[in-house]
Design a protein around this nucleic acid. Structure first.
Length: 680
DNA sequence: CCATCCGTAAACACCT
DNA sequence: GAGGTGTTTACGGATG
């Protein structure tokens, strides 16, 4: 148990009842040895009739769009492979524009990469850019489609009138109704598609821009952190949440109507509303079936997984798909509430997109830097490349790592390799390189502060229902260390989890159990009796003991990457790459590395004092937790460490449970200092 | 194949 | 008794 060589990451749990929709959307339970991502590979090369005209059904059109997206992506890959990628592509926007390949051209691309392959090769930002562009395109075409339909309808009406045929009113009405239904159908398809994409984490759509990828993202009127609450709130009928959404001015209905028209007045007969919904394919990038959404996919539904409804805030248990469909039709019919929830979801997507854009920028800069391309200084929050000589990968030392919060620099040797965008298909993608997607095995080698990573991305985790790529132990530790007095009650730990990660706002029973389990199981967590009760502290020594001295990059990372390309996994991977590099560092006995000594300090510093913004988290009921800085002045000791620790801390020499009580030599002392230091 | 780690589930005890 | 807190065991998946 001392050696925590294994994954330091929290992988997507197949078990939990619901898992993250995004993570486990595809296969229930553990069935997915190759979980998810499977189906998408096939049937990919479909060449749908190019002219998306009258004949094409909405579903086909969508499918067509998806194909186009894939083709464009492939084209992009080609460009990259041939080194065409302009160095200027530092941010996703540029990437996006750079990818503007005429559809026709894209369609002709000889490259036949599977979506998985592309995902393996393309970095998240790249995918993001590609998909966003494609979505914009898609929306445009959909709009055209709408127009055509309308024109057709008008024409029909006109001709009928001209013909003087006394068209029974009902007939007209029926036609219009039919048209409306068709529109609605398409809209739902769109919505479905968007949801799918969003769940896959690959794309999110800006409601109010039908075209034009990635642009100034209109800040959501709703605070991202409110979203989860909104969901919950909306779950109950007559909740104010819905109203709040409306009054928040989410005028998406008007502006977004073209994109995702949730605004369709529910005058259309309900029955048809949901038939089209069932079945997006949880698989990555969706497959053909996905688009041909009229046929029921018997086995899956994007809103159904692990036996429960994944409609935001719902989680109703449904034994089978049929039951779920029923539930969907009854509980989530096309009504005001559902519409409002969709709007909220759109906001979620928006936020994710924003976050993704940020991350994309960062990644681009990282890659640019590691490529040694003259990357223009990005407006990062992070002061990277302090290391002048950093240009040489081989020489990245631990100290350098300090300066490399995000740079997943693999100090020795292979550092360069990971960066290359193109890699043997079987191997991990460069973009997610080194750090390893979900697991941190290789992390030791990477020296970048991650807790900082966590801090930097905490906005992301806060809003995105993505499982953080850290183990429970790491997270717990982080939670505890983030507090000025380095101790938390169980409940406070819970609160931290829910506050920091959207993912942990669900399945509370599961992860709370895991938290308790970890607290009890790991020696590094020390329970200290308190007046009020008990608080938990971290024994850094023990914690560090867990880390194995040697770990090198492993192919397993790759595997993870490949297998887990779903939304969560993708992000997790990305995050993990960044994150893992930091946590470990903190954890690792810095002593091992001579150079690390210096870095250890700052790092742990970073770790501890991580700039985690306090951010009013409406999410949790937790008492407003101040950021360390604000806290510093507070009372250090919640209570004197009663003598109740022996039970847990029998013997470890340094095991003084209460950090503040007796500062264990180096580490602890250091850590103690950190807060103050950081604060000042 | 084995050992280890991790996450999850669950049973149980204790306390409020 | 219900619920929260802790502890412990068991299991399966992932990994080296």
């Amino acid at each position: 148990m001392m050696v925590e060589s294994a994954s330091e990451t929290i992988r997507s749990a197949p078990s939990g009842q619901n898992g993250v929709g995004s993570l486990s959307g595809q296969a229930d339970g553990s069935s997915g040895g190759a979980t998810g991502t499977t189906a998408s590979g096939t049937g990919r090369e479909v060449t749908t009739g190019a002219d998306s005209n009258g004949e094409m059904s909405p579903a086909e059109l969508l499918h067509f769009q998806q194909q186009q997206a894939l083709q464009v992506a492939r084209q992009f890959l080609l460009q990259q492979a041939s080194g065409l990628s302009s160095p200027g592509n530092n941010d996703s926007k540029q990437s996006a524009s750079a990818v503007q390949v005429p559809v026709s051209v894209a369609m002709m691309s000889p490259q036949m990469l599977t979506p998985q392959q592309m995902q393996q090769i393309l970095s998240p930002p790249q995918l993001q850019a590609l998909l966003q562009q494609q979505q914009a395109l898609m929306l445009q075409q959909l709009q055209e489609y709408y127009k055509k339909q309308q024109e057709q309808l008008h024409l029909q009406l006109l001709t009928q009138q001209q013909a003087g045929k006394p068209q029974p009113k009902e007939a007209l009405g029926n036609k219009q109704l039919a048209f409306q239904q068709q529109l609605l159908q398409m809209q739902q398809l769109q919505q479905q598609h968007l949801l799918n994409l969003q769940r896959q984490g690959l794309v999110s759509l800006q409601p109010n821009q039908a075209s034009g990828p990635l642009q100034t993202l209109p800040q959501a009127a709703v605070c991202p952190t409110d979203l989860p609450q909104l969901w919950k709130g909306e779950g109950a009928p007559g909740q104010p949440a819905e109203d709040s959404v409306k009054q928040e001015g989410l005028d998406l209905t008007g502006t977004a109507a073209t994109a995702t028209s949730f605004a369709v007045p529910p005058k259309v007969s309900p029955p048809l509303s949901h038939h089209t919904l069932p079945n997006g394919q949880p698989t990555v990038l969706t497959s053909r079936r996905d688009s041909s959404s009229h046929e029921e996919t018997p086995s899956s539904h994007p809103l159904y997984g692990h036996g429960e409804c994944k409609w935001p805030g719902c989680e109703t248990l449904c034994e089978d798909l049929g039951q779920f469909i029923k539930h969907l039709n009854t509980e989530h019919a096309l009504d005001d509430r559902s519409t409002a929830q969709c709007r909220v979801q759109m906001q979620v997507v928006q936020q994710l997109e924003i976050q993704l854009a940020k991350e994309s920028e960062r990644l681009q800069a990282m890659m640019a830097h590691l490529h040694m391309r003259p990357s223009e200084p990005k407006p990062f929050s992070q002061p990277l490349n302090p290391v002048p000589g950093s240009s040489s990968f081989s020489k990245v030392t631990v100290s350098a790592a300090d300066s490399f919060p995000d740079g997943l620099v693999h100090p020795p040797t292979s550092a360069a390799a990971p960066v290359t965008p193109l890699r043997p298909p079987g191997l991990g993608s460069a973009s997610l390189h080194g750090g390893g997607p979900a697991r941190r095995r290789s992390s030791d080698k990477f020296c970048s502060p991650i807790s900082s990573e966590l801090a930097q991305n905490h906005e992301f985790y806060k809003n995105a229902d993505v499982r953080p790529p850290f183990t429970y132990a790491s997270l717990i530790r982080q939670a505890i260390l983030e507090t000025p007095d380095r101790q938390l009650t169980l409940n406070e730990i819970y609160n931290w989890f829910t506050r920091m990660f959207a993912y942990f706002r669900r399945n509370t029973a599961t992860w709370k159990n895991a938290v308790r389990h970890n607290l009890s199981l790991h020696k590094c967590f020390v329970r200290v009796e308190n007046v009020k009760g008990a608080v938990w502290t971290v024994d850094e020594r023990e914690y560090q003991k867990r880390r194995p001295p040697k770990m090198t990059g492993s192919p397993t990372l790759v595997k993870n990457m490949i297998s887990g390309l779903s939304y969560g996994a993708l992000n997790a991977s990305y995050q993990a790459a960044l994150a893992e590099s930091s946590f470990p560092l903190l954890n690792s006995p810095g002593m091992l590395n001579p150079g690390s000594a210096s870095s250890l300090l700052p790092l742990s510093h970073d770790d501890v004092g991580a700039p985690v913004e306090p951010l009013p988290s409406n999410g949790s009921s937790s008492p407003p937790r101040l950021s360390p800085p604000q806290y510093s002045h507070q009372v250090q000791v919640k209570e004197e460490p009663a003598e109740a620790e022996e039970d847990r801390q029998p013997g470890p020499p340094l095991g003084t449970p209460n950090p503040s009580a007796s500062g264990p030599p180096e580490d602890r002392d250091l850590e103690e200092e950190l807060p103050g230091e950081e604060l000042s």
